[in-house]
Each structure stands twice: as structure tokens, then as C-alpha cells.
Nucleic acid binder design. Structure first.
Lengths: 217, 217
DNA sequence: TGCACTATTAACCATTTGGTTAAACAATGC
DNA sequence: GCATTGTTTAACCAAATGGTTAATAGTGCA
């Protein structure tokens, strides 16, 4: 038994529908189940079944639940962070950055609605272990660029005084929380799925407007 | 075996330190462990040990893990919601409401930092079952009061046009998210515990200022 | 004092669960 | 063809886990 990932390009088993290869099927299944149930709630058996394979084969590709989990988690973190730094670390003006960031982040999370809750929960369960690599993965944290820019705009009297950290937290909170807290928000506000989706879509424009209103002089 | 909760007032076992009664010790232990590990990650054995009792006694007081979980969850939901409605449903002016709400909510969550993440995660794992009672528990949802007030202020041209739902989501997001996403935020912003606590405390004033700035004409 | 009832425990049980093994199956090179 | 190597499975295993049982200790009260 060895863990060499297979080299095959086109040659496939005589199976009918799948053209992706076992490893990808496993990852896809694991992604879904881990995100839906969390590390503690996920079952190797269920992942195997959803991937259409045997449980033993799961351990043949990924030695343990932890190993498999780490693959999924590391992929998830990278996805989340890779949207974060490029925009905020770029050359745009502050207001443009805010607009681009919110638009990009909400679009992304709309396509991956379970991601934030998954990451946040697991990182809370295991802060040291998971947040250490947060820095390395997905590019070096470039927030200092953004923070300096905020301070510069304050000095130039273009915006009111606000701690960059607070501004960043506000922005991220408003983007991410509605996805993490969706079921609660819908229940509390008594809003159906369609209406809530519409609210989420509108937030791409609403949040930047809100933020810029809040800070501009 | 019966589940009668004991009637004793003062008479206690000859145990040394505890004066709270077994049931309360169990609930305290369960609260901590469920909040830290979640339903799926919690172990009955561990709860028993933390309560200083036998696992069998746990089942003597609360028949099953689910039953015990429901006690904790229902208590948690009530706590969260009981801060929500009274203030927003009250008679204060809009700006005062916002200030009171943010102040009260952040204070509360500061004292119970694991609560939001716990509730949000479990409600996501099991939306139907848990969010149904969200409405009943902790008083009827009084958001319509708040929503009408927002619309009235818009009409009176005291604030700019904004959907009440969006405003509410913004407010709740900024209050709650920093607690749910704390480990991630600290890692990403490279901020130590002390500094982060300070930021959180400052948010009690910062968020209302931010919101009011964003919406006032 | 002894009886009824509650509280508590050690030992036990059945199921679930992550993980392993040995053998069957393909595919590929020679 | 057949040996080699990688892939897949059914069966199995040990530990963990939620839950139960039967016996013990404690307490009030008739």
C-alpha cells in the first residue's frame, strides 16, 4: 500500500459516469460533509458512501480522518484568504477598495455559503493549530497596507477618525455574518429564502454605501 | 427511577464544597462543554466528570444526551433573544435604541463569549428543529416595531433611505461577528488578546457612532 | 427501628466508529 | 501470457460512546 497519487491522465476504469478520479471524488464528498457536519460530526463511512467507494479506500488515499480533514480545511482557508489580501493590498483608492472587497467577498461566499461557518467553528474548536497557518497560507497578510491607507486618509481629512482595525472588523462582519447567522436571522426577521437571497445580493451595494457614508467627511 | 426534581431546600449530602445541588452542577458542566465542543463533539463522560459525578447519574437526571442538550440550547437561545427584543421593541428614539442595543449586546456577549458561536453552529446543523422555537422563546419577536420606526424616520427625512432589514443585519453583524470570528480576526489582524479585548470594549461606542453616521442625514 | 423513597455508583451492554487486513481485481510492462 | 504494481473491496478489530442495570448508601417519617 502506498500513498502515491496516481499519475493517470485519461485511462479510466470502466465505470460509467465519473471522469474525475477517485481522489477528487473523495475530496468533493469530504468537502460537503465536513462543511455540513463539522469535523466532530462527520463520519468516514458517510464520506465514503457519498464518494461512491469503500471506507477502506478512503484510508488508502488519506490515512486518517484528521489527514483528510486537514486537506479540506487548508483548501478552505486558502479560498477565504485569497480573496482577502489581494484586494486590500492593492493600489486602489480606499473607497474603491471597499467596494471591490465587499462585492468580491459576498459573491464568493454566496457561492460557498457553508464555508465561513465551517472555518469559524473549526478554528474556534482548535485555535492554535488552525490559525497558525492562517498567516502563511494564501499569501502573506497584507492588512498593514490597508491599515496605513486608512490612517493616511484620516490625516488627509478625507474620512473621519476611525481605528483601521475597527473599520476592517465592521466590513468583514457585515459581509460574513449574514451567512453564518442566516438561519437565525431568517427566523428572527421572519424572512423567506427568496427574500433573504435578495437581501444578500443587495448587500453588495448596500454595505459599501453604508461604510462610506459612515466614514466620509 | 423517576425524574422528579428534588424538593430539598437546605439539607445536603455530607459533601464538602458544593452547595448548589447535583442538577445545577450538571447544567453548569454541560453548558461549558457543549459550548466549547458543540453537540457532536461533547462527551457525556466528560460532562459527568466535570460535574464531579457518575455518568449514570447524568442519565438519571437527564434521560439522554439530546435531552440535556435541549436544556442547554433552550437556555442559550432565551439568553440571546431576551436582550434582543426588549430594547428594540421599546419606546426610545431610533438613535437611542441603537446605542442601548449595541451597548447591552456587546456587554452580554463579552460575558458569554462562546454563546453566539455555539448557537449559530447548532442552529446551522439543525435549522428546522432549533429555529422554530426561536420565535416562541424569549418573548414574541418585536422587530416589526423597530422596522416601522426606521421607516418612519426615513419618511421624516431624519435618516437616509435604508431597508430596515439591512440596518438590523448590519447592527447585529458588527456586534456579534467579532466574537464568533475572534480567533480568525486576531490571527489575520495580528492582534494579541489584550488589544483585542480593548477593541471589543471600544466597539460599544464605536458601532453606534458608525451606524448613526452611516444613516443620519 | 424499619420502611419507603431518592440519590449515587460500579459494572455492564450494544452500537458506532476510525482504522486494518488479506484477498480479489485491474492495468501495465515485458 | 504472466509477473508486477497499483486499486478496490468484504470482513474484521479495538476503542469509544451513549445508555442501562442492579446493588448500595442516605434520608425522612410512621
Amino acid at each position: 500500500m502506498q500513498l502515491n497519487k496516481k499519475v493517470n491522465g485519461t485511462s479510466r476504469t470502466s465505470s460509467r459516469e465519473k471522469e474525475e478520479g477517485t481522489e477528487q471524488k473523495i475530496i468533493a464528498a469530504a468537502r460537503g460533509i465536513f462543511q455540513r457536519k463539522g469535523m466532530a460530526g462527520a463520519r468516514m463511512e458517510e464520506i465514503a458512501k457519498e464518494a461512491g467507494i469503500n471506507k477502506a479506500l478512503l484510508h488508502y488515499y488519506f490515512r486518517s480522518k484528521e489527514k483528510l480533514f486537514e486537506v479540506i480545511m487548508s483548501e478552505a482557508k486558502m479560498q477565504m484568504l485569497s480573496r482577502l489580501y489581494p484586494i486590500l493590498g492593492g493600489d486602489d483608492s480606499l473607497f474603491i477598495k471597499i467596494e471591490k472587497f465587499v462585492e468580491s467577498y459576498i459573491s464568493f461566499v454566496t457561492d460557498n455559503p457553508l464555508l465561513p461557518g465551517f472555518i469559524l467553528h473549526e478554528i474556534t474548536m482548535n485555535p492554535e493549530k488552525i490559525s497558525e497557518q492562517l498567516i502563511k497560507k494564501g499569501g502573506r497578510p497584507n492588512l498593514s497596507n490597508f491599515f496605513h491607507q486608512v490612517e493616511a486618509e484620516i490625516k488627509r481629512k478625507n474620512i473621519i477618525a476611525v481605528q483601521p482595525e475597527q473599520l476592517f472588523m465592521n466590513m468583514l462582519s457585515m459581509c460574513v455574518f449574514p451567512f453564518v447567522g442566516r438561519p437565525m436571522l431568517q427566523a428572527v426577521m421572519n424572512v423567506n429564502d427568496k427574500k433573504f437571497n435578495q437581501l444578500l445580493a443587495e448587500r453588495k451595494k448596500e454595505i459599501p454605501k453604508f461604510i462610506i457614508n459612515a466614514i466620509k467627511r
